[in-house]
Write a protein that binds this DNA or RNA. Structure first.
Lengths: 335, 335
DNA sequence: AACGTTGCCTACAACGTTGTAGAAACGACG
DNA sequence: CGTCGTTTCTACAACGTTGTAGGCAACGTT
């Protein structure tokens, strides 16, 4: 059985409130009293009951991070950074896996986690702005592009700009038939649309045609989808000399398909991705990619949440942008 | 402001307890009363306060999963399975990242999560059995090898047997100079020791010498460590014709180093790993590996925890074993 | 008609904590 | 010595929920 303030108080011969004062670092406690209490705490291995504390104070010290899937490396890496950033505020992070479906995401947003958490950092795929209106509940920070001008604080990166830059990098390497893998027409595909826009922008700026046949959709952004899309492109007879994959896992799948088709990367086909996941630094060949500053994204999200928790909860939503850079590796340059 | 039972009760014109009864599905409520209450709940968007419920009932419906690092794919995949298995019991899973250090793990085990969680599934690296003795607190299920006969329920796989089998697979392919990457002398290296034992067993059974020069240590089991260890082996002049890496990320690093050295896999050197992470199905070449049944590990862990929560908390600790199989891919067979 | 049973509902207390209010002891000061 | 302010500590109530005990009707049985 767990010990309570009451047990500690009895052992130390003081009132419950005095023990509470010691636990909470209240200054006006005589040194010898404090020592006696601390001794009793240690002997009984007392731990405060967070539920009771929360009930009384209205804060749990727990925030949630909701992501579509944990075994997508990008989200796992992001989760690590969020946990690190939250540690600065002594927050525990509850990680929630939504699966990415609209209904599940709505459940999370509308507070399945109920009164257990103080705030939510949410990376939605399918959620729309209207799903979020009228949510009185927990303060929320959104990551990613989906809910563009929704009612919540928001951390983004410049998807269009980043896609344009990396496409332009391929163009400056002399590539002319640049394919794109990962387009999506579904409402979930907000990031896909933005990256496709950047891709098209870069082509246009360079005077290259936008060729529908070079743009391959991918239902999800897993390795298998990337491989399938690449095989499809090759089978269709288009002969790209470069491929912009809308994320790194797609690119790793594409590398695989190119390898199976006997094409060399980057000699025959240059490949670039997006996200800078760990795998891309060790793949064969290593992967040129857009590297969003994940640590910064996490830090901004946590700080926005902290401000919202301490400050005015009805202040207008803010949108912050995190930086990125291009990470040039073997898949676009000969070793 | 959030609504409470009291607000719903006033709106529906009933007592607080009746609303509670409706929320909890108590049968003896007149249909029209129930309808009125449900209407009020919907109108006010009422959500129960889990902290208060916990305080009263002693259960939160939240369990924690503590793993060393989330961006190690094995743990991310495991986390997904645990979340899925826990959903069967309507449990929320709080995922905790320990970092793998002994002190941090001790903090987690001794209840940093305090009274917020009902139970803990814990995959420790550095923790010893004695760190766990005398923990009165939360029920716990351990994953992995570290705390062999500790005081807590335990889910394992047969590391020695699996290592022996996959080493034997290399031997049956005709390989004779089989290196091992990932040995560790630190206390954290329990899995490493077991896998090394299986490796040595297989060599002995086949009448091959155990050559210390073929065994490369790796401080951690990341891709970079695998690459460094492989480079070290090659530089030392030993010429292995196969490598058993103690996990898949090490193996992916080793593939990378072999590629850089101009050696072909599997023609010159066969490579096998351990864990069956998603990456190994798309790497070039794809990776032969030991595939532990992660879904089963997660299910067993969750079920053990459920039994412990509902049953006798002082019953003797149980140890369950999860199955594995060999996944044969390109890194040991020509395409 | 009297009685027990069942269905439906309510009042109260308690879970462990902390904010508020205030009591008691003490020292400083006029 | 009385007054005042400070330090140190305590009693009480409240956070939102649910288990327990019990009351009142309506019903069926003798």
């Amino acid at each position: 059985m767990r010990n309570r303030l009451k047990d500690v108080a009895e052992r130390a011969g003081v009132s419950v409130k005095t023990v509470s004062n010691v636990v909470n670092g209240y200054v006006h406690v005589r040194p010898d009293t404090r020592a006696r209490v601390e001794e009793a705490i240690a002997e009984l291995n007392y731990r405060p009951n967070l539920s009771a504390r929360h009930l009384r104070k209205g804060r749990t010290g727990v925030i949630a991070l909701a992501v579509p899937e944990l075994d997508i490396p990008y989200f796992a890496e992001l989760a690590r950074h969020v946990v690190t950033a939250a540690a600065e505020f002594s927050w525990t992070v509850l990680i929630d896996q939504t699966g990415g479906g609209r209904e599940q995401e709505r459940v999370v947003a509308s507070g399945i986690t109920d009164h257990l958490i103080d705030g939510l950092i949410f990376s939605p795929l399918a959620l729309t702005a209207e799903d979020l209106t009228g949510l009185d509940g927990t303060p929320m920070v959104l990551l990613g592009e989906r809910v563009d001008h929704g009612p919540a604080d928001h951390v983004v990166i410049d998807n269009v700009g980043a896609a344009r830059e990396i496409t332009d990098h391929l163009i400056r390497l002399g590539r002319r038939r640049i394919a794109a893998i990962g387009s999506q027409r579904t409402p979930e595909g907000a990031s896909a649309r933005l990256r496709l826009t950047g891709y098209a922008d870069a082509l246009r700026a360079a005077g290259l045609d936008y060729d529908e046949a070079l743009v391959a959709p991918a239902p999800a952004w897993h390795r298998a989808d990337g491989a399938a899309a690449m095989r499809g492109l090759l089978a269709s007879g288009v002969r790209p000399d470069a491929v912009f994959c809308f994320n790194d896992t797609l690119a790793l799948g594409a590398l695989r398909a190119l390898h199976e088709a006997g094409l060399r990367v980057p000699e025959d086909v240059a490949v670039v991705g997006f996200d800078d996941i760990e795998d891309g630094r060790f793949s064969i060949p290593t992967l040129t990619t857009v590297a969003p500053d994940k640590a910064q994204i996490a830090r901004l999200a946590v700080e926005l949440l902290a401000e919202r928790l301490d400050g005015d909860r009805s202040a207008p939503a803010r949108e912050l942008s995190a930086p990125y850079r291009l990470e040039l590796r073997e898949s676009t340059q000969s070793p």
